[in-house]
Each structure stands twice: as structure tokens, then as C-alpha cells.
Design a protein around this nucleic acid. Structure first.
Length: 415
DNA sequence: TGTCCACTGGAAGGGAGGGCTT
DNA sequence: AAGCCCTCCCTTCCAGTGGACA
């Protein structure tokens, strides 16, 4: 039967958002509060591009959600404008190395960004790498002026493909006659520089810009600025923005997190047809974001890790207490493997899988000594059992064990 | 005080699978 | 196609250990 007025009822409720898009991480705002130092620093490093000189390469470092990408894109946009106004040719190419993560793809991406003509594009596979490099050189030279290349999440590229690309790109100026290239590397992980050739490190790090985390007050400013555009007038209770800022400040001052919180709070309020967004909505949003994160992590776990995790959940259920020993969870795991027809790994391997789950924050495992009764790890689930179990149940192989459970007596005999 | 439990976690190495070169 | 190397996942082996208990 059709429910009449299903959408009418929803449409009648006053919308809370004016423009939700400005709260999304992909949005680059016109104005970046508390980042003027970094903007100026980057701009003054790049300004030689407008004078026909070669700008230094720049390395940008900062934790997630500190505005690195936004600042780089913002300065890029301004630079192109200034170039047009002053008759200087400036190319600005943004590459996210999490997506474009091999030498071939990076070079192709840059070359194709400099081509308007579809027929001249380099195919996504097929060419020898040195030929791509030669073509790229030719295109950069043909385009002339300055070409600024942003390599975002550059650590991902180095881990995946090594530093050959960076080595080649940092030396490309020597092979150019009419044009100049400078690189901006962005990373939230400093460790990756250990894997770089010393020549690449010194060349890439000619200039360094550090993005410190935002504190709670700065996050409030950011939220206020965006909330003004995102929400309709008077839709936020006074406590909402300070709370979002405080919660995000606890998590290493991540602006992305703060904006997510605000957006999800609004969505929850809207779904409930609430008149305004309240503190309660923020708390619920915090909870929802955390559960979504866990759900995503658990869903993408390899099969054996899922088995180990499920055996911890089942083990806690059956023993009716928090905190299992390694031996207990391994016994449950073995039963579970038999019940699902999976391979049984050794205890040694399972301890490693447990440690991995510990590092991911899905459970906590700490070494305790029970004296006479040996030394072991005490393993506790640190995520909601119900939701986690529901995600594990999605796996066809685990569905039965998850829902129908293991044979009761068999398990209790073991435990 | 020494014993001994139930492990921990390092080291070394096997083998499957993918990618690259020849 | 063959050979080689690398990475990942895993096993086997084993020395080491905190602290309750005799």
C-alpha cells in the first residue's frame, strides 16, 4: 500500500541547512582563518614564478585537518589569477598521491594536465616510463613559464613507488630550456623522508612550512565562519559550536573532524525534524562518526582478522566478563574456524593479528602476569560489540556462526 | 627463595603470488 | 615462457619473563 504524504511530511519540516556543501572536506573556502602566516610564507616562496624565475621547492608538513591542502590550493588559485593579471604564464597542477601512486601515473597526470588536445594525451598504460618522461619534458617546455606541481600525500607515493619519481622531477629543470618546474610536497607523516635519497630530501626541503594543529578557539572561528553559510539563521544552539570545537581539539586539532561533527549534527537534527541543532545532536554525531569509522575498519579487515575479532566478541559473551586471555580467545578462535570451515592459524600468528587489532584501536591487549598461572595478554574489546558483530555478520562465511552461534556446549566445554 | 606457568615476542625461513626483465 | 626478485602471510623454534605459590 502506498503511504500518501510520505515526502510531503518531510518537505514541510523547516530545513536547517542553507548550503551543506561548505562543511564538506572537498570545499575550499575563500578565507582561511588562522593560516595567514602559512599563506604568506607559501606565497612569498612562489612569487618568483611571476617574475620569470624558478621558485624553490616546498615541503609542507602538518597533521590531518590542519589546512595544508586548502592553503596550497588557495595560494595556487591566487597565483594563477596574478599570473593572468601580470602576463606571466603559470601552470598549477594538483595531484593526490593516494590515488595517483606510481611513477608512470604521476608523470602522465602532469603531462595530460598540460594538454588541452585529447589526441595528444598519454594513455594510462602502454608507454615505457622514460618515453613518458621525455614527452612530459617536451610539454612543460612547450608550455613555458612556471609549472607548480603539488604532490599531496607524498608519503603514500614514496611508500608505494619509491623516490625515483621525486628524483626525476627535482632534476627536471636541468633538462628544460624555456620553462621551470617547482614542487610542493604535502605530507602528514615526517617519517617518509628517511626513505628518500639525500639529494631528494635536500632539494624538496629547500623551504619547509609547518602547519600546527588548531586549538579549540581557532576551531571555533573556523566553524563560525562556515556555519554562517551552511546553516540558516538561528538554527544552532549556543553550545553547539564550542562543543564541536572542543571535541575536535581533543583529537589533535583536526578541522576536518570539527566540520564533520557540525555537519552530521545538523543532519541528525534535520532527520528528527528538530527545530534547532542542540548539544545532544553533537554528542550523537560524535558517536555516529566513531561507529562509522569502526564499521569501515572492521568491514575491510582480512578474513582471518575477522575470525579473530569475532572470537573475542563470542568469547566475552560466553564467559560473561570483559577481558580474555590469549589462550581463551585462541580456543574460541579454533572452534570458530572449525565451525566455519576456515584454516586454523597458529597461536603465534593469532597473537600478531591481535596486536594489529590493538593498534587499530578495535581492542586493547595488555600483558599481565597471573603469577603461578603464567603470563598472558588480557584482551578486551574497545568498540561496541553489537555493531561490530553486525558488520562481521555481513561476511557470508561468518553469517551462520554469527547469528546461530557456536554449539553452546562445545564452547563452554572449551572455556 | 626458587619454581614454574602460560604465555610473549624475536628470528629465521617457507611458499604463494605479483611484477619485472630477459 | 622462464627466471628472478620482492612482498606478504604464515609456521617453527625458542629464549625470556612477572609474579603467585610452595
Amino acid at each position: 500500500m502506498l503511504r500518501h504524504g510520505l515526502f510531503e511530511a518531510l518537505l514541510r519540516t523547516e530545513p536547517i541547512f542553507r548550503n551543506k556543501e561548505v562543511l564538506r572536506p572537498t570545499y575550499t573556502p575563500e578565507d582561511l582563518p588562522h593560516r595567514s602566516d602559512q599563506i604568506n610564507q607559501l606565497a612569498s616562496t612562489l612569487v618568483p614564478a611571476l617574475r620569470g624565475e624558478t621558485p624553490s621547492n616546498v615541503f609542507i608538513y602538518g597533521k590531518t585537518g590542519t589546512g595544508k591542502t586548502a592553503v596550497a590550493k588557495y595560494v595556487g588559485k591566487e597565483l594563477i589569477e596574478a599570473g593572468k593579471a601580470n602576463g606571466a604564464r603559470v601552470n598549477f597542477i594538483y595531484i593526490n598521491c593516494e590515488v595517483v601512486d606510481t611513477q608512470y601515473r604521476v608523470l602522465t597526470q602532469i603531462a595530460n594536465a598540460l594538454t588541452d588536445n585529447w589526441n595528444e594525451r598519454i594513455p594510462f598504460t602502454g608507454w615505457p616510463t622514460d618515453e613518458v618522461y621525455a614527452k612530459l619534458r617536451e610539454k612543460i617546455d612547450a608550455s613555458g613559464g612556471a609549472t607548480i606541481i603539488i604532490l599531496d600525500e607524498i608519503d603514500k607515493l614514496v611508500f608505494k613507488a619509491g623516490d625515483d619519481v621525486l628524483y626525476n622531477l627535482t632534476r627536471i629543470n636541468a633538462d628544460l630550456s624555456k620553462a621551470r618546474v617547482s614542487l610542493i610536497g604535502i605530507s602528514n607523516d615526517l617519517k617518509f623522508t628517511e626513505f628518500l635519497d639525500a639529494r631528494v630530501t635536500s632539494s624538496l626541503g629547500e623551504e619547509e612550512i609547518i602547519f600546527p594543529p588548531y586549538d579549540a578557539a581557532q576551531l571555533q572561528d573556523i566553524l563560525k565562519q562556515r556555519a554562517g553559510v551552511a546553516f540558516k539563521e538561528g538554527m544552532l544552539e549556543n553550545a553547539v559550536i564550542p562543543l564541536c570545537a572542543a571535541l575536535a581539539a581533543q583529537e589533535h586539532g583536526d578541522a576536518r573532524r570539527a566540520l564533520d561533527l557540525l555537519r552530521v549534527s545538523g543532519e541528525i537534527a534535520e532527520r528528527e525534524s528538530a527545530r534547532r541543532v542542540s548539544e545532544q545532536h553533537v554528542r550523537r554525531a560524535q558517536n555516529k562518526i566513531e561507529i562509522d569509522r569502526v564499521t569501515e575498519v572492521v568491514r575491510t579487515l582480512p578474513m582471518q582478522s575477522k575470525l579473530v575479532l569475532l572470537s573475542v566478541i563470542l568469547g566475552e559473551e560466553h564467559t560473561q566478563r570483559k577481558g580474555l586471555t590469549t589462550g581463551e580467545s585462541y580456543d574460541t578462535y579454533r572452534e570458530l574456524c572449525k565451525a566455519t570451515g576456515s584454516d586454523v592459524l597458529t597461536q603465534r600468528r593469532v597473537t600478531d593479528l591481535l596486536s594489529e587489532l590493538d593498534i587499530m584501536g578495535i581492542l586493547t591487549a595488555r600483558v599481565i602476569s597471573k603469577g603461578r598461572y603464567g603470563r598472558t595478554k588480557e584482551i578486551q574489546l574497545s568498540v561496541p560489540a553489537g555493531e561490530t558483530r553486525a558488520v562481521l555478520c555481513e561476511e557470508p562465511q561468518l553469517e551462520l556462526a554469527c547469528n546461530a552461534r557456536l554449539p553452546q556446549q562445545k564452547l563452554s566445554a572449551v572455556l
